[in-house]
């Protein structure tokens, strides 16, 4: 808070901007570049797969099952003779969509809930958070399995289940950020100026917690990608024949002894995506989240 600034000169306060010490390299830059590159790579894969894949990712072939890498099949074929390279490429679409959907659902619920809990009178707000605790205690994967059992297996059910699972964590973080903003004098000044809660939330709270929100979104994305792979692995995620990394892993599991490489490729894809989002999240946190600010 106390940035060194020029004391006003003898001739009064000339309106020159406060002088700052020369800027260091901003926190988290390396992490953001590394994470951004990995995430960019995955997004690029998804975009390319929309217009072109080496082979048709869904075409099976009884004659060329479990082949090794070749010019025709770059990464070989799986137990049904499908081209693994094409499947890995096309399989990136679903995790990204699920990640995006999950973050949207989670934040559309979590952010307003968190802000509302912080803004409401003490008692009611605390009860809202107790409800939130109960929701948070409920495993998202279990919720996904129940929803899949009731409404059938689909990408949509997975998104909603994972989003609902993400929301309580978001609400908790957003509430603490909101309380911080509300404790500042400018929030008090707005109230003393007769401004209502909705104005406060939109004009003061949201802009000042956007850093926290971005960080949470990135981390939520990574969790969602991993959870989607897990659901697909269990057969509760995206139904066949749409290619998906999680189901590729499950298929590969049955031929693990004969063709171990078939596990490697989708596994690596999931790992790289999650790693990318986590690195990006850590980098953004270093830059935006004041609580993580290092005192150097």
């Amino acid at each position: 808070m106390s940035t060194p600034e020029t004391a006003s000169s003898t001739t009064g306060e000339t309106p020159q901007p406060a002088q700052r010490p020369p800027r260091r390299r901003r926190a988290g830059t390396g992490l953001i570049i590394a994470g951004g590159t990995l995430v960019g790579l995955v997004v690029l894969m998804a975009l390319v797969s929309l217009v072109w894949t080496p082979q048709d990712p869904t075409a099976t072939g009884a004659t060329n099952r479990l082949e090794g890498p070749s010019a025709e099949h770059w990464l070989g074929t799986d137990g049904l003779g499908r081209d693994i390279a094409s499947m890995v490429l096309a399989g990136s679409r679903v995790p990204l969509l699920v990640g995006l959907g999950t973050v949207c659902v989670g934040f559309l619920i979590g952010v307003p809930y968190g802000i509302a809990a912080a803004l409401t009178e003490r008692g009611a707000g605390l009860w809202m958070m107790r409800g939130n605790d109960i929701a948070q205690a409920f495993p998202a994967l279990l919720l996904a399995i129940i929803l899949a059992a009731v409404f059938g297996v689909s990408t949509g059910t997975a998104v909603i289940a994972l989003g609902l699972g993400l929301a309580p964590g978001v609400a908790r973080v957003v509430r603490s950020g909101t309380l911080q903003v509300l404790s500042r004098d400018y929030a008090l000044a707005a109230r003393a100026a007769g401004r209502g809660s909705i104005y406060l939330a939109l004009r003061h709270v949201l802009p000042n917690i956007r850093g926290i929100i971005i960080v949470q979104a990135t981390v939520g994305f990574a969790i969602a990608v991993l959870a989607e792979a897990a659901l697909s692995f269990l057969g509760l995620g995206t139904p066949p024949p749409t290619p998906s990394w999680g189901r590729m892993l499950q298929d590969a599991q049955s031929v693990l002894n004969i063709a171990p490489l078939t596990v490697l490729w989708p596994g690596m894809a999931v790992a790289i995506t999650v790693l990318g989002f986590n690195l990006l999240g850590d980098g953004l946190r270093d830059r935006f989240d004041p609580r993580m600010e290092r005192t150097r």
Binding site: D185, L188, A192, R203, P207
Partner: peptide, 21 residues
Amino acid sequence: WLRQSMQIVFQDPMGSLDPRM
């Protein structure tokens, strides 16, 4: 009416202005 006719100036000029406005 009170919010229009009574106003406050706070102590800390850093904290009383929203940095994003």
